[in-house]
Computed example of a mutant assay.
Amino acid sequence: MATRTDASTRREQILKEAARLFAERGFHGVGVDEIGAAVGISGPGLYRHFAGKDAMLAELLVGISGQLLTGARRRLAEADGVAPGTVLDSLIEGHIDFALDDRPLITLHDRELDRLRDSDRKLVRQLQRQYVELWVGVVREVYPELAEPTARSAVHSVFGLLNSTPHLGRPGALPGRAVTAVLLHRMARGAFGAAGAV
């Protein structure tokens, strides 16, 4: 008899492979049977875990937006009494982890967000706005001379920079995760510094 943990792990495997396949070939270019084959179960067996491809896509995109927001809130809570610059560094590190480890989800978001039901798409946007505003607050603590609209523009620009990882080539083509992470962090801090110097 499968345990709840086994079912949860299976769902995670399905979502990971679905994200990879959707990112590689597009949502409509992938069948349920192919996703099932990638995780070693029959296509119809997927319906024990998900109602269909639309449900997988929604869970992927709503899920990652929620995870980013939850992770950022956790980092802020853990940084109580810490210098704002250190908090900003922590937020950048968290987003870099996402950008390097979940590259298919970035591609998926860019290509397939409009395929979500209105309610799911609105939820993704709501979670993303909260995530942006959390960053804006921290950025303005580090660079108090920045007006709120400028800080918000800087945050969006840094997200664009960090979320460019799908365009850096295959993971093996990168100079190494640690080196890439340091480079992205330095560039993100440089972008915020440049915005603060304007």
Rank of each mutant, 00 (worst) to 15 (best):
A23D: 04
G160H: 08
A18G: 10
D120F: 02
M1W: 13
S8Y: 08
I64L: 07
A79V: 06
R117A: 15
V136S: 02
G26K: 02
D102T: 10
Q13C: 01
E93G: 12
T165I: 04
R121L: 10
M187C: 07
A2N: 14
E78A: 08
P175V: 02
G31R: 14
D102F: 11
H185L: 12
G172P: 08
M187W: 05
F27N: 01
A37F: 06
R10M: 15
A2R: 15
R4N: 09
A72C: 08
P84E: 02
F22K: 01
L61N: 04
R125A: 13
V179M: 11
R73I: 00
S157H: 09
F192H: 06
A178I: 12
T9V: 09
R75T: 10
D89S: 14
G81M: 10
R4A: 14
T107K: 10
L15P: 09
G43H: 12
A188Q: 10
R115A: 03
S90C: 05
V132M: 13
G45N: 12
D54R: 12
E145F: 05
I96W: 00
V132H: 13
H49Q: 05
G71D: 06
E24T: 03
D102G: 05
L127Y: 04
H28M: 13
L88P: 02
R74N: 07
W135C: 12
D6N: 14
L146C: 09
Q128N: 14
L88G: 00
T86A: 15
P84C: 06
Q13D: 15
G172E: 13
P175C: 00
V158T: 14
R111A: 09
V124I: 03
E12W: 05
R152V: 03
G193T: 02
F98G: 11
R189V: 10
L168F: 15
A72N: 15
A154I: 05
A77H: 12
L21P: 01
I96K: 00
V179E: 13
F192A: 07
R170W: 11
L88W: 01
S90V: 01
R103H: 02
A19C: 13
L184N: 05
H167V: 07
E34F: 07
L116T: 10
K53T: 02
A2C: 09
V179L: 12
E141Q: 15
A191H: 14
L91V: 07
L113E: 10
F98E: 09
M187Q: 10
F159P: 06
L69W: 03
P171R: 15
H167I: 04
R189M: 10
